[in-house]
Amino acid sequence: MYFYLPVALTSINILIPIGLGLAVGLLSGLFGVGGGFLMTPLLIMLGIPATVAAATDSNQIVAASTSGTYAHWKVGNVDFKMGFYLLIGGFTGGLFGVQTIKILRAMGNADFVIKMTYVLMLGIVGTYMFIESLQSIRKKEAIKEEQKCESKTAKLLKSLPFQTHFEKSGVTHSAILPIIFGGIVGILAAIMGVGGGFLMVPVMIYLLRMPMHVVVGTSLFQILFTCIEVTFLQAYTNHTVDFILAVLLLVGSTVGAQIGAVFGRKLKGEQLKILLAVIVLAVTVKIIFELTLTPSLLLSQAGGQ
């Protein structure tokens, strides 16, 4: 059956967005990422204008991350306190990022620099996560050694003011830390035009030393608010949210997020990490291909990203 999308101005077989939502929702529930890296290009491939694809995806993520946060919260895997601090930082960082991108654009050739930075960062994060989780699956001692090595920086971090205990994550940090990290991710996400899940999850694992399962739930909680903000701004300023498409997508993604959360509970933290690392690396490879292979069309709709 086909539905006509009033904002995208195109018709779509409803099974496609529902199926797509299911797959992307599954990734959300499992790894705590929004899944925009997969959803947006696929929607564009289906003939949805780029601007509508990005805006509608953020609307859909609101539903998927609500569903996912709910599922993880039920089993006590959402650190609301940490999420709140990260959000403060992320929101401020986002505002800075939007300004930074204007300056970068004015300097010219910004897109090149941004894209290269993005590819490099994904590549480094993916490789690091992959190697680290592979090692910790093979021998648990590797983690302990690492923790000893980091004790000097840990001491420095302990000397920062506003030390707070994050009960759910079982860590104690200065409240400044998540705000700063959230801010950096917010800046980068705004500059690169991505949701930031790929960056936030490793930050929480490796810099805030949170347990993987809490990372997933907390990341979803944080993504939920970011996407509410983005959806509203897109609807208000660009008029690019397609309600019908969003509903079709969320039918799949809300269910997918639940299934993902259930699956996630059955996997160990290390297993989740290595799977996410593989996905991050796959996305990196995909972007490299996109950049180097001759595109079939040299023109595309303006706007988007």
């Binding site: 539903a63 609500t66 709910y70 959806t231 609807a235 969320l250």
Partner: peptide, 13 residues
């Protein structure tokens, strides 16, 4: 759009 997305997320949960 946001309210319906939130509702759907909670509902399915």
């Amino acid at each position: 759009s946001i309210v319906i997305a939130l509702g759907a997320g909670f509902g399915v949960g």
